[in-house]
Amino acid sequence: MPLKTLLTLVATALVATCASADAPAHTDADGMPPTIAIIIDDMGHNLVEGTRLANLEQPVTLAFLPYRRHTVPLAKLAHQNHKEIMLHAPMANTRNFGLGPGGLTPDMGSQKLKTTLRRALQSIPHVQGVNNHMGSLLTQQLQAMDWVMSELDRYPVYFVDSRTIASTIAGQVADAYRIPNLTRDVFLDHEQTEEYVDRQFKLLIKRAKENGSAVGIGHPHKVTVDYLEKHLPMLDEEGIAVATVSGLWAMRNNNRPMFAEGEKQVIQPAYAKHR
């Protein structure tokens, strides 16, 4: 997409975002209950907590780092247990934290960035979406986000902006490419205490009640998994639904399909096929 055209589309999307900020609270005309989607980032490192998350009864969405030791077997287990799978794509941050394999950085040219992203997608079994791991630097850069979204536009995947910095433009560029996308509302576990997770979880539910739905992001910390195992089964009694990311997107978009059949190129798996 020409950069001038992209700039115009992003500017339009930013105006629309600002205009909607003062909109009244969402009321679901179809009577749908307030709904949350919970994404667990950084999957692939921790086998014990990753297995517990894959075995949860509720439809949490699991975002896997590429090429980590337990990514492939845990993603396969999660898929068997009807979980939705995402690529947690490492992106450059403002603090120069290391990204590990599969990282996307500003010094990459277009072809290298796209090839790195494509191979990372191919390394995740059953991948349906992408969100950014860190990315406080890269998600502010229009050219880099153009390259990211032009690659993602080839495949039947959605994008979630983890919103690791307020000035991110990732969601606006995804909109410009008409890639189905959502934005994170609440981080659950910046502090790894039960009190903090409880406060953030209640904030997530509050946002869902105010707006109809909300997206929370957590991590495979023991305190987080313990909390979710205990509290997710209680949500039915509170009248709160839990959905996958694609389910939440459909709810917000009149249940229309994300992609027409045959519209996108199938992702060719390129990972070790363990039995």
Rank of each mutant, 00 (worst) to 15 (best):
L3V: 14
L7E: 13
T12H: 12
C18E: 12
A25Y: 12
H26K: 14
H26E: 05
P34F: 02
M43I: 08
G44F: 04
G44D: 02
H45W: 08
V48T: 13
V48C: 12
R52E: 06
N55V: 03
L56S: 09
A63Q: 05
R68Y: 11
H70F: 14
K76M: 11
Q80E: 12
M86L: 08
A89L: 07
F97C: 02
G100D: 02
L104F: 00
T105L: 02
M108V: 01
M108D: 00
S110A: 03
V130P: 09
N131E: 07
S136E: 01
Q140F: 04
Q140C: 12
Q141D: 15
Q143G: 00
D146R: 15
W147T: 06
S150F: 08
L152I: 10
P156E: 07
V157C: 08
V157K: 04
Y158I: 00
F159Q: 03
V160M: 05
R163H: 09
A166C: 03
A166Y: 08
Y177V: 08
I179M: 11
I179H: 08
P180E: 08
F187G: 06
V197I: 15
D198G: 06
L203E: 14
I205H: 13
R207M: 14
G212I: 06
A214N: 12
K222Y: 07
K230Y: 01
H231Y: 14
H231R: 13
E237A: 15
E238F: 12
S246I: 00
M251K: 15
M251R: 15
N253F: 11
N255D: 15
G262V: 00
I267C: 06
Q268I: 14
Q268T: 13
P269I: 08
P269F: 05
A270W: 05
R275N: 10
